[in-house]
Design a protein around this nucleic acid. Structure first.
Length: 651
DNA sequence: TTTCAGGTTGGCTCG
DNA sequence: CCGAGCCAACCTGAA
């Protein structure tokens, strides 16, 4: 028995199986081991996190805590209600810590937070150990093997991965855990600075994370409830936890035909009972499932099938291929840092003059969390998209499923992302990414950002003439419109013939189905009948507008870090009549209105807004969706779970 | 430097 | 009803 007193800092690695960091901690043969979680004010107030993802996180924490207690009745996940950056320096002393161990993060926010923690540990004489564990390969090693560049294709990732070496074999779940030490705390809780609460709309009570002491309302370091966070109950049917997913995984893997021949493009985006894919993504996000364990279990089955001459699917469409894409996005993020999450100053993101562009802080070259409303019509289209009121039932069904359940199929994400950006509204992918960040229970910053760039044809992918139809694509999978009938219940009894284009149905058919197709989504009832909106634009027309717009952007050929993007002179290269905020001399580099005060100020609405399309009247009755138009201090889209600190300006 | 094949997962028509 | 093949048309990376 050594004299090591170990703080094991759980982050997004809420599991006991296959954890390289936990193994490193246990290899110290510690005298005591404290499994802890530091409650992060950034995640509570400033990252976009809806109540569904909160619930999933709390589920995962509860589950890992129970598993810890099973291995040692004295131990559990000790939840400390304070961000790591302020808490740990004092905790090191109070609990006489000798070692701090955690799983490595490679996103920009995580790196900066961890650098601060590592520095404070150094000053306290605490040894720090961390291990890569979130990905198949250490993302930093992948980047190095890829010549220091971000991995922009699956072949690049595969080549770089091969250079790094084999994917590590899974590590056994520990059979016992050391006792925790004395839990007395000789310091008071430090109140984090709370200047705004981006998640206020999810609360029905007071947020209580930081007013009951470090050990929580009962003084027992318990995992909080949604109630303690002042949050409304979750609406998602999906529940988190390592034990749930390990059990579910066995059920999936027991179907060797499904596992061995899985091809993502052949799985239906319209299936919901049950879903057509395994829904492992939220568990992978919170670390409740190890991607390497998943990978090797699938590979074993594939190998068995190969030896018996049974058909086997291969990357990129196979199950293992899905994990490779995840690693590709993680390595791209690891290489690009902050700029990965935005167009501005991103060397690998193509510049397109999208509507509703992000505001930029010129000093840091980072997006502020706000955006320019260059066209009120486009703002309305964005709000209708986000809430599932576009008048295109396929799009609306998916967006409502996202709002209610927090999970939608990958191809469904394609359909709505293409629709918002290059194949419909011509609105910035950064707006869509923010909505997904808020609503998805599986939100993984690297994958979300990467996929939005993919679908908007700004990075990773470029075939913009391949455009998803909001009618034909859905019909291909779900002719009867079952997904629509489930999530757009006002169309539940609509005739199959018109279910994807209800505005084409004769009024008699509408009345018979008990729904009128009219208006723009504000009205929900008329004459005792439900109301569903008309399409917010003619899709074929918009498709053509978008393709021409992107074509011009490709011809101009700018990327986020080109000088003309950085200083705003890109407008000179675009036709004033082109789609997007391309006209005029005024405006900022990322957006177009009064950019000089973007920095530091928090009011998002720079009046007066000048609608470009005078032919379309402003719909003054429309009430915008609050979250996305209320501007907060920078809401970091790459934030992970812990720490809160003031970001220093970069030169 | 030029060339050319390849690119996770579209839409449409025809047999 | 299904699948094959064409359409339309771009960049990127490897050779």
């Amino acid at each position: 028995m050594s004299t090591a007193r170990v703080l094991y800092w759980f982050r997004t690695d809420l599991r006991l199986h296959d954890s390289p960091a936990l193994k490193a901690a246990l290899d110290l043969k510690p005298e005591v081991l404290y499994p802890i979680w530091c409650w992060d004010s950034h995640y509570v107030y400033h990252a976009r996190v809806g109540n569904n993802r909160w619930q999933f996180l709390l589920d995962c924490m509860e589950d890992v805590s129970r598993s810890i207690t099973k291995l040692n009745g004295k131990s559990k996940l000790f939840v400390l209600r304070e961000p790591a950056v302020t808490l740990l320096p004092r905790l090191f002393k109070a609990w006489k810590i000798t070692h701090l161990v955690f799983e490595k993060d490679t996103d920009a926010y995580g790196r900066e937070r961890d650098a601060q923690v590592i520095e404070s540990a150094k000053q306290a004489g605490v040894k720090v150990m961390f291990e890569s564990g979130r990905t198949l390969w250490d993302s930093d090693k992948v980047v190095k093997a890829n010549g220091g560049k971000p991995t922009m294709s699956i072949t690049q990732l595969q080549h770089a991965g091969a250079k790094v070496g084999g994917i590590a074999a899974p590590i056994e779940t520990p059979e016992s855990l050391p006792d925790p030490g004395d839990l007395a705390l000789d310091f008071a809780q430090t109140q984090p600075d709370v200047s705004s609460d981006i998640n206020a709309k999810y609360r029905n009570g007071e947020e209580g994370s930081y007013n009951s002491g470090v050990a929580g309302p009962n003084g027992d370091f318990a995992v909080p409830t949604l109630d303690e966070l002042g949050m409304k109950p979750a609406t998602t049917p999906h529940r988190g936890g390592e034990s749930i997913i390990l059990q579910k995984l066995e059920a999936i893997l027991s179907d060797e035909e499904y596992t061995g021949t899985f091809e993502k493009p052949k799985t239906s985006p319209a299936a919901f009972e049950p879903q057509s894919t395994c829904l492992t993504s939220p568990y992978l996000h919170f670390g409740a499932l190890s991607c390497r364990y998943f990978y090797h279990r699938v590979e074993q089955i594939a190998e068995k099938r190969r030896q018996t001459n049974k058909s086997v699917s291969v990357p990129p469409t196979s199950l293992t291929g899905q994990l490779l894409f995840r690693d590709m996005y993680f390595a791209a993020q690891a290489a690009l840092g902050w700029s990965f999450g935005q167009t501005y100053n991103n060397s690998h993101c193509r510049f397109v003059p999208w509507h509703l562009p992000s505001k930029i802080d010129l000093k840091t070259k980072l997006i502020t969390g706000g955006y320019e409303v260059n066209d009120v019509q486009k703002e309305m289209e964005f709000q209708r998209w986000a809430t599932g009121k576009t008048g295109f039932p396929w799009i609306d069904a998916i967006m409502r499923q996202l709002n209610i359940e927090g999970w939608i199929h990958h191809l469904a994400r394609h359909a709505v992302a293409c629709f918002l950006t290059r194949g419909g509204c011509y609105i910035s992918w950064e707006r869509g990414a923010e909505v997904f960040e808020e609503l998805l229970i599986d939100h993984e910053a690297a994958c979300n950002i990467g996929n939005w760039q993919w679908l908007s044809c700004t990075a990773f992918y470029s075939q913009f003439y391949r455009c998803y139809s909001p009618v034909a694509f859905g019909k291909k999978w779900d002719d009867n419109g079952n997904l629509i009938r489930k999530f757009v219940p006002e169309l539940k009894n609509f005739p199959k013939k018109y279910i994807y284009e209800p505005h084409k149905a004769p009024i008699q058919d509408q009345k018979k189905a008990g729904v009128l197709i009219t208006g723009d989504g504000e009205e929900t009832e008329r004459d005792g009948m439900s109301v569903y909106p008309k399409p917010m634009f003619d899709f074929p027309t918009q498709r053509e507008v978008c393709i021409q717009g992107i074509k011009q952007a490709y011809r101009v050929g700018l990327h986020g870090n080109d000088a003309k993007v950085l200083d705003g002179t890109w407008k000179q290269l675009f036709d004033d009549n082109g789609e997007g905020p391309t006209e005029g001399e005024q405006g900022g580099p990322g957006g177009m209105l009064s950019f000089e005060d973007a920095e530091g100020k928090e009011d998002g609405h720079h009046a007066p807004l000048t609608p470009r399309r005078s032919s379309k009247e402003e719909k003054s009755k429309y009430v915008p969706r609050p979250t996305t138009t209320t501007i907060h201090k920078r809401d970091r889209s790459q934030g992970t779970l812990d720490g809160a600190f003031t970001k220093k300006a970069k030169k």
